[in-house]
Design a protein around this nucleic acid. Structure first.
Lengths: 246, 246
DNA sequence: CTAATAGTGTCTTTGAGACAATATCAT
DNA sequence: ATGATATTGTCTCAAAGACACTATTAG
């Protein structure tokens, strides 16, 4: 392909972030209000072009993440999600976006990034339902990111990324319930979570009181792959074809 | 980010393909011998730059696929795998590759593509073990593609993409065994596969004889998501942390 | 004591894995 | 019948889901 007179078409690369966290027991996505054209004033995922020449994609994602959340990157889970490159997705021309998924524990209120007039945590359901208009194809990207998080909760220890360093089992359950949008039986959840070796390990015993018996604290264990997995209930039974991106 | 004098860095986009098929009961990957520099003469995944201006990424993947396999694209499963963009991965400069995973039923011997001096099916284990040197970071891409296929076999109906339109349960089992690299109990496999509603549906009854009782034929059913899933045995028990890309 | 939250136990059903037996073809 | 392959059963154990109970704190 790369022979003679013909030469390949360059494209512009952006990095977009689906940053998820839990606030008041509900799943939230970080959105920014665009301060520039196109889509000025509209809500969008945080992101931007690759910076200086030769910036690595993952570095750019980390940079955008800290610009927007002002958080120690080391504490945030960050992974590549997918590429969105359909021509027409960006009015400026051929702009290809490498979307990333970031998971963070209850974050402070966001700070306005360089690019964004304003930034805010928005409930995930509002994004999924489409009642909020998002710039570009960002609604689809957000939906893909949320779906990825839902699936990874089942088989990986991703849920602990939503928690602080130490957490109770009840808090962990809240993560599952919020991300999956279901209710889980507390008793069964206790049993299952503890049955997965290496998922969570005890960390100290008691903690700040909440009026009842103090909970035990745990922290993320060495295992990143859960076995047995924690299957989400919805699709087990009634649900027909859900899940699956492709 | 995209303000004032500063302007974003363009990159070159390529599409690379991990094309998998079954040959003689073993998993194979399609590799080409590069006819151009860099890495001239070395083995690599089929792929190339985006073609004419504004070619869609997915279209480019389809194009490369049919150039290399000469197969009706409609019959081949094709999905995006991941993006590989580390600077230094391509000596020509900043070249970002969107890797794709393709699954096809037993394919005819490959034809040489435009770009490739030669093309051949290579056993997957040879690629994974590293005994074959691959150009660029293609060994890692191939490994990621194979791992993706292994995982998707568990929860999706992807396995049927390795088979022809009609297939026997024994053939389907061969797919699982080859891709997972394990042996499965025929009796249990029968039971489990048939228990998944909508996975496979009966198609005709008998078939070409093989010396014993003729097998029933099936074709892919409407379900793309398997429930219950077909968990691969290895990681259930002894295996420690395997699986999981991130 | 009561209220409140944390954690354990039991029972039933479903699916996984090991393994035996039967069915249907060609010869 | 024999050899070969396909298909159906059976039995045991692990894990899911429903649900009742005990434990430990604050007041």
């Amino acid at each position: 392909m790369q022979n003679d007179v013909w030469s390949p078409t360059p494209v512009l690369l952006t990095v977009d972030l689906v940053i998820l966290t839990l606030r008041e027991g509900r799943l939230h996505v970080l959105l920014v209000e665009r301060g520039e054209d196109p889509f000025r004033g509209m809500l969008a995922l945080p992101g931007g072009f690759l910076d200086h020449d030769g910036e690595e994609i993952l570095d750019a994602a980390h940079r955008e993440l800290s610009e927007e959340t002002a958080l120690a990157s080391g504490w945030v889970h960050l992974e590549q999600l997918a590429v969105y490159g359909e021509s027409g997705r960006d009015p400026r021309g051929r702009v290809v976006s490498v979307a990333h998924l970031a998971i963070a524990p209850g974050l402070p209120d966001p700070i306005a990034g360089t690019d964004a007039a304003d930034a805010a945590w928005v409930p995930a359901e509002g994004v999924l339902s489409g009642e909020l208009g998002l710039a570009f194809d960002h609604r689809r990207i957000a939906a893909d990111g949320i779906e990825r998080a839902r699936t990874k909760l089942e088989f990986s220890s991703l849920a602990t990324a939503f928690c602080g360093e130490e957490f109770t089992i009840a808090e962990l359950q809240q993560v599952y319930e919020a991300v999956w949008g279901t209710e889980l039986d507390t008793r069964n959840f206790y049993r299952k979570v503890q049955a997965v070796k290496g998922f969570i390990v005890p960390a100290g015993t008691d903690r700040r009181t909440t009026g009842g018996r103090p909970a035990r604290l745990y922290r993320a264990g060495p295992r990143t792959v859960l076995f047995p997995p924690l299957i989400r209930p919805a699709l087990s039974a009634t649900e027909e074809n859900t899940r699956g991106e492709e």
